[in-house]
Structures are given as structure tokens and as C-alpha cells.
Amino acid sequence: MQVIVDNLDAFGRGAWGTIVLFFWSTLGSLVLGTLLAVFRVSPSPALRAVGTIYVNLFRNTPLTLIMVFCVLCLPILQITFTEDSGRQYRAYAVLALVAYTSSFVCEAIRSGINTVPVGQAEAARAIGLPFTKVLSLVVLPQAFRAVVPPLGSILNALLKNTSVASAANNFELISAMRGLVEQNGNAVIAVLIGTTVTYVVLALLLFAGVEVLERALDRDRKGARA
């Protein structure tokens, strides 16, 4: 176990890399996923079709393939974001994670919309709200509450999926682990345990965060009812 103590900074930098990837990917996939969900319930058949095609395409493609495609093929297409190579590869990895995760976020929000009682939308329309307001003021806020638990699972999966970025020149927990294994051939098990424990800690933090959010939203709803 000495190897973990000696390399705490490597684990720390790896965990930080994982957290940074997770943060940007969460942000991106919540935005894109919500947009796609709006597409999928919109009055326009064309937009609905776009949403459906996107979701079916990206939900059925392995994340590893999307990741490798972004890193190897986007430079061929001269699609670059920055001169700094560290940030460049992180951007590619985040792009891949967002493209993949959005399809799941979209589906979770859509089924969240489905759990909102029809009466809510009917009442909103009865007082004369247009589609955009029905959605943004009445249906989506309630849908988000129903969506928190499945969204929690999606983010949990996303946290783990950041590991795939290790195949794309991103320094995160798995890359840190592989580096340590190369240097400490005699302490492989300790390094593996250290990595696993770090993931468990990150997952617990995420779990606690989701819990807090859920409780806050519940309070909100009760407040609204009172």
C-alpha cells in the first residue's frame, strides 16, 4: 500500500482529470440532451425526426468508437479548437462524451415529460399559454423532478465513462493507473485498489450531490403546493 501513499499526487491529478472531464461533459450533455428532448416532442415532424435519428444513432454506437473517431478523425477534417494540445484532446474527449451521453439524457427527459399528468398541460393551455411556455413553465420543471433519479444514473455512468478518454491522450484516473502500473511492477494490486477506491469516492460524492438535489426539488414542490 506504500505505493499509494508515495503516489498520492498522481492519483490526485488523475482524479482531477476525471472530474474536469465529468464537469464539462455533464454541462454539455444536459444542454444538448434537453434540446434534443424538446425536438422530440415538438410540433414539427422534421425536428422530431432529427431527434429520433440522433438518439438512435448515438445510443447504439459504442462510446469507444465515438471517442477514437473524434481524436483520430477530427484532426484529419481540420476541425480543431485550440493550439494547446492538452486542451485540444480534452475538448475532443468532452465532445465524444457529450455526443454519446446526450442521447440518454434526451430519453430520460422525454420519459420525464411523459410522467407529467396531462391535466397539467391542459390547464396550462387553458389559461392560454403557447407551446413554448407550456413546456418551459409547466411541463419541463415538473419533468425535471421526475428525471432526477434516472439522470443520476446517467451521470453515474458518465463518471465511469470518462475512463474511455484515457485512450485519447487525456490524463485521468485510468491513465494515471496505467502509468503507475508501468513504474511499479511489483505493486500492481495496490495501484488497482487505489484506483478503484478513488472511483468509489467520486461515485459517492456524486450520489450525495444527486440526493441533495432531489431533496431540494421535493421541498420546492411541497412549497409550491402549500
Binding site: N56, N60, N114, P117, G119
Partner: peptide
């Protein structure tokens, strides 16, 4: 409870 149901999804057959 009545719920809002989504439209049918585009057939998977196209992909196949």
C-alpha cells in the same frame, strides 16, 4: 393517471 404519450419512434428497420 393519464399521461402524455410520445409518438411512435421511427422504425428501426431503416437502420438494419
Amino acid at each position: 393517471m393519464r399521461t402524455i404519450r410520445s409518438r411512435h419512434r421511427v422504425s428501426a428497420l431503416a437502420g438494419v
